[in-house]
Design a protein around this nucleic acid. Structure first.
Lengths: 134, 134
DNA sequence: GATAGTAACTTGCATAATACAAGTTTCTTA
DNA sequence: TAAGAAACTTGTATTATGCAAGTTACTATC
């Protein structure tokens, strides 16, 4: 019952990864952030149509576990932008492999853009920094 | 309502991948098969403890979508072993990247074995073939 | 200065996914 | 003859997800 007992299903790294980000929406929010989306409304307007309560919950959880961090961009009312941490940006290879697999093996699905497949976690971080300090 | 309208959330390859294998258990069953487990009881005895109704359901679904195939190893009563197809074995890079990420970023989790990180989909297929034709 | 609009949420309730326990069938072994 | 294993199915409880509506604090428009 305390915050230091995450209680993963097993010691297996794969299983633990799925316990942390293996839900229906988390990786899609991470994808959006890789595309330089930063605000609540940006995530909401993605084509998958994430329910607003789920989005609020995922942003809270992803921040708690250190995958994203929020920075205020407006006071009165207080509003935040969300950015990937290094931990979050390092999920990019996972996203890329998932996209490659679906593109190769699921006929109906779209083609991932080259910039996405060619990017690295470092690119993502760099792009975020230029956006934050214009 | 027909079998040819899978109705994915969007055209996005990542989103489609998650629609296909983005649940809590599918990739763990694929992992077990990468470790040369083939039978129902093998999957059940993995440390995560998959519920038996979920396991039966996932084996059916994974076969329907062509990620695994079953072959009889015993008649009366009829019993099947399950193997990865090429489509299934090609999920290995996804599993590897998830395991690498968790190993690097989640303190409590275990270390993936070298053979797992060094393997390729072709290795997996080859290992299955030697098991099938002794 | 009242009215409408926007952004980022929260709340309540319905539906779907997952979990747990028990039962079933068909052999095999003691 | 009885007990056990293997591979499930069925029933029900719990949790996660989905949808609609409401809230708060501004900003811009008539």
């Amino acid at each position: 019952m305390n915050a230091n007992s995450p209680n993963y299903r097993s010691e297996c790294a794969l299983s633990t990864a799925l316990d942390v980000i293996g839900d229906k929406w988390s990786l899609l929010v991470v994808r959006d952030m890789c595309m330089n989306k930063t605000k609540y409304g940006d995530f909401q307007s993605s084509p998958e149509g994430i329910p607003t309560n789920i989005l609020a919950n995922r942003l809270r959880r992803l921040e708690e576990i250190g995958i994203i961090e929020k920075k205020p961009y407006h006071t009165k009312p207080l509003r935040y932008e969300y950015f990937l941490t290094a931990k979050g940006a390092n999920l990019l290879p996972v996203l890329q492999q998932l996209a490659i697999w679906a593109h190769q093996h699921v006929p109906e699905c779209g083609t991932p853009p080259d910039w996405f497949l060619d990017a690295t976690p470092e690119h993502i971080i760099a792009a975020q920094n230029t956006k934050q300090q214009p």
